[in-house]
């Protein structure tokens, strides 16, 4: 088992921990970014073949890495970026209304 997969696990769990333990909205958004990057790292890792070249076939090649996860990674990056942008926009709006970034202090909705 390669050590890099452990990096994926660490990043994933770090992201989850950041989301569930932090009270600060901005830090929660950071947690989502960490989570997203762990999944992108996983995609890149599963596409890797030892000794492979990039999947651009303009010259002689022998081993090429798997192109599908790279395409999926691009999709994931775009979607993750969009979600992060929307989250930040909502955060700006919430901060303007409540003048705080603490999640506990803006819980008007309960039950």
């Amino acid at each position: 088992m390669q050590i890099s997969y452990i990096a994926v696990i660490i990043l994933f769990c770090l992201g989850i921990y950041t989301i569930i333990s932090n009270k600060n909205i901005i830090k929660m958004v950071m947690g989502f970014t960490i989570l997203e990057s762990s999944l992108i790292l996983l995609l890149i890792l599963i596409s890797y073949t030892p000794g492979g070249t990039a999947p651009i076939l303009d010259r002689q090649y022998e081993i090429v890495v798997d192109p599908i996860p790279q395409a999926l990674a691009l999709t994931t990056i775009v979607i993750g970026g969009s979600v992060t942008a929307v989250m930040l926009a909502v955060t700006i709006k919430l901060y303007k209304r409540y003048r705080t970034l603490n999640v506990d202090k803006l819980r008007k909705l309960r039950g």
């Binding site: 994933f12 909205i25 929660m28 989502f32 999926l72 709006k93 209304r97 803006l106």
Partner: peptide, 29 residues
């Protein structure tokens, strides 16, 4: 205020859910 807060909670929960789904999808691939 309530709408924004609801949207924030919705975003957080649904994104968390999507990441688990994505993880499972990648492992399936």
């Amino acid at each position: 205020n309530k709408g924004l807060e609801g949207a924030y909670k919705y975003l957080v929960m649904s994104t968390l859910g999507s990441f688990f789904i994505l993880l499972a999808t990648i492992l399936t691939y």
